[in-house]
């Protein structure tokens, strides 16, 4: 839940009084032209970006205005929120599988074998299981996106944030992505998708929110 969020850069309002709510199992599209603050809103929810006014509550964990709290105080938020970056930001020194196992092993404390099994299941469910041993630079754009989704899903978050997921996809892959995201909603997750792709938003989102410029 985002309540009257306000973010200022250099005394200019990037976001003003943004309020929205994403329920479990719901796909909400946040529509706006480029530069209107969609990414800023997602970053605020992921606690990568401080905000000036308002309140953000994720599954009972509240973020308040002011500087981003130290990581030690964000442990429970990190398990509740996953973020898929626009450029995917896969760790390019790790294989696709190890991108997914990193949090499983080092945050959730799973053994190597358990983490590998969970990660492989996630990659399989996103239809990139065959690419588990590939390096990020060997993946196509669509494959990299699916690996990035698998990585964000590894801690099993209640809310998944996606920044411009259709930016580099052809129409056929866009449709496939829509189906994948619907599948995630059916698992009971909330999805907040920032996009400027009106067609995609209308076709796949439960609700479309448009940010005023």
């Amino acid at each position: 839940m985002i309540d009257r969020l306000r973010v200022r850069f250099d005394s200019r309002d990037v976001l003003r009084a943004l309020s929205l709510e994403v329920a479990a199992g719901e796909l909400v599209a946040l529509m706006a032209p480029s530069g209107a603050g969609k990414t800023t809103a997602l970053r605020a929810v992921a606690a990568l970006q401080p905000f000036d006014e308002g309140r953000i509550v994720v599954d009972g964990f509240a973020l308040l205005p002011g500087p981003v709290p130290p990581e030690a105080r964000l442990v429970s938020l990190r398990r509740r929120v996953g973020l898929v970056f626009q450029g995917h930001a896969l760790f390019d020194h790790l294989s696709a599988l190890d991108n997914v196992t990193l949090a499983l092993r080092h945050v959730l404390g799973k053994s190597r074998a358990d983490a590998d099994a969970v990660a492989q299941r996630l990659l399989d469910s996103l239809e990139v299981g065959a690419r588990a041993s590939a390096w990020p630079r060997q993946l196509s754009g669509g494959e990299a996106q699916r690996v990035a989704i698998a990585r964000a899903l590894a801690p099993d978050p209640a809310l998944l944030l996606m920044d411009e997921p259709t930016a580099a996809l052809d129409p056929a892959r866009r449709t496939a992505l829509g189906a994948t995201l619907r599948g995630l909603c059916e698992q009971g997750r909330g999805l907040l998708v920032a996009t400027h792709d009106a067609e995609f938003a209308r076709a796949h989102a439960d609700r479309v929110l448009t940010l005023g410029t």
Partner: peptide, 14 residues
């Protein structure tokens, strides 16, 4: 790149 570090933070790494 900063995005690599942020990706680590969103996963809950210290």
């Amino acid at each position: 790149p900063r995005a690599q570090l942020e990706a680590g933070r969103t996963l809950g790494l210290s």
